[in-house]
Each structure stands twice: as structure tokens, then as C-alpha cells.
């Protein structure tokens, strides 16, 4: 299983902060984003290709090509605004 986490505006708009997904055919961050986008509604809007989405794998900043495997923790969030 892959643990998927959502933060800030994404968490609020999706009404979800974490979910467990079968790794299945998901080999990289881009595969996972494609699956989430295909759910329609808010998912399609937040993860549309023209949206700025940051990703982290196992708590390190990742990009679309970062590989994923069973047991990984993946997070999606909007551009950060701390400081």
C-alpha cells in the first residue's frame, strides 16, 4: 500500500487528509497524480495539469518522475507559504 497525504487547501477542498492506495500500476508520482485526476470533480480541478502541485515522497520534496513503491508515504500540497 501507498499512504497518500494531503495538506492545507488540498486537504480542506478534498475533505481528506490521508488515504491508503494499492500500489498496483503506480510506478511514479506522475502515475498517482493521473489516477487522482481521473476521479473527476474537485480531484480533477486541483490536480489539473496547469495547477501548481508540490509533491513529497517519504517526506522529501519530489517531482513527477520520482519513483514510488509499496510502503511509501506520498504527500501533495499547494506551494508553501511559511516564514
Amino acid at each position: 500500500m501507498i499512504e497518500v497525504r494531503f495538506f492545507a487547501r488540498f486537504r480542506e477542498e478534498l475533505g481528506a487528509d490521508t488515504e491508503q492506495l494499492e500500489a498496483g500500476h503506480v510506478n511514479c508520482v506522475e502515475d498517482l497524480l493521473t489516477d487522482l485526476r481521473a476521479r473527476g470533480g474537485t480531484w480533477s480541478r486541483l490536480f489539473a495539469e496547469d495547477q501548481r502541485v508540490m509533491a513529497a515522497v517519504n517526506q522529501e520534496v519530489a517531482d513527477q518522475s520520482t519513483p514510488l513503491k509499496d510502503g511509501d508515504e506520498v504527500a501533495f500540497f499547494p506551494p508553501v507559504t511559511g516564514g
Binding site: F7, R9, A56, G82
Partner: peptide
């Protein structure tokens, strides 16, 4: 730009997430 923190502010118009 790198540390995962997000600001949400409360104004007279309600709550809103701050854009990067």
C-alpha cells in the same frame, strides 16, 4: 519556498489560504 508551511488568514470576508 521549500519548507512545508501553509498560511490561512482570517479577514472580514472570512478565511482564505494565502497564495505563494
Amino acid at each position: 519556498t521549500q519548507a512545508p508551511f501553509w498560511k490561512k488568514e482570517l479577514t472580514e470576508g472570512g478565511e482564505r489560504w494565502v497564495d505563494a
